[in-house]
């Protein structure tokens, strides 16, 4: 078997084998022989050799955290982001309130009002991060892919409202080009364009 196939084989018991336990010494002479045999084995020196070689190879695996950071998985569910439409720069959120409804820890609050075109826009969008459990339901349920999870994982702050206001989460207009789609919960699959079909109008 090669590659990933071996993981599909659920019948693991066929690889079991019996560990050979050497018979326990019964007479004092046998015990003595075992002690001598074990003492004269170079096991201790082999242990020393391994650590010394590791030191000489200097194969360091430390990440010096505040200076260096490991890349986060794109599906990581960090602090939320409110996205904008790429072409116009308008907010994607339509104030439908689905996220507010589905939130299981009940931490999202939205205030909406109709704008001059008669469209509903959110005036306030806040998440209480003291209660949010980062389950990802809001991102999954959002029909416009507007509320998503970001990559931010350093949550410590001086104020309770540090990340929670709308202006903190919303992509700034000047950084619109750097805005990235979220590939996690609720996002379209990579092959979504091929799979999608036209909507029949005859309903």
């Amino acid at each position: 078997m090669s590659g990933l196939e071996q993981f599909q084989d659920r019948n693991v018991s066929q690889n079991y084998y019996r560990v050979k336990i050497e018979p326990y010494p019964k007479t004092p002479w046998e015990k003595f022989k075992r002690v001598v045999r074990k003492s004269l084995k170079p096991d201790l020196l082999i242990g020393l050799k391994i650590t010394l070689l590791e030191m000489l190879r200097f194969n360091i695996h430390t990440i010096q955290y505040p200076k260096e950071k490991l890349p986060v998985s794109p599906r990581f569910r960090g602090i939320h982001r409110l996205l904008r439409l790429l072409e116009s720069g308008n907010e994607r959120c339509i104030g439908c309130g689905l996220c507010e409804k589905i939130c299981i820890s009940n931490c999202i609050r939205i205030d909406t009002k109709p704008d001059e075109n008669g469209r509903k826009i959110p005036t306030e969008y806040t998440i209480n991060f003291g209660r949010c459990i980062f389950c990802g339901y809001c991102a999954e349920v959002c029909p416009e892919l507007a509320i998503v999870h970001g990559q931010e994982y350093e949550y410590a702050s001086e104020q309770r409202a540090q990340f929670a206001m709308k202006e903190d989460m919303l992509t700034p207009l000047d950084k619109l080009k750097e805005q990235k789609e979220y590939p996690g919960f609720g996002a379209p699959t990579p092959a979504a364009d091929k799979l999608i079909k036209k909507t029949p109008l005859a309903y």
Binding site: T51, L52, E54, M55, F58, I60, H61, T62, Q64
Partner: peptide, 9 residues
């Protein structure tokens, strides 16, 4: 030295 032997800094 302990750190280097354990692949740390």
């Amino acid at each position: 030295v302990l750190a280097f032997m354990q692949r740390r800094l």
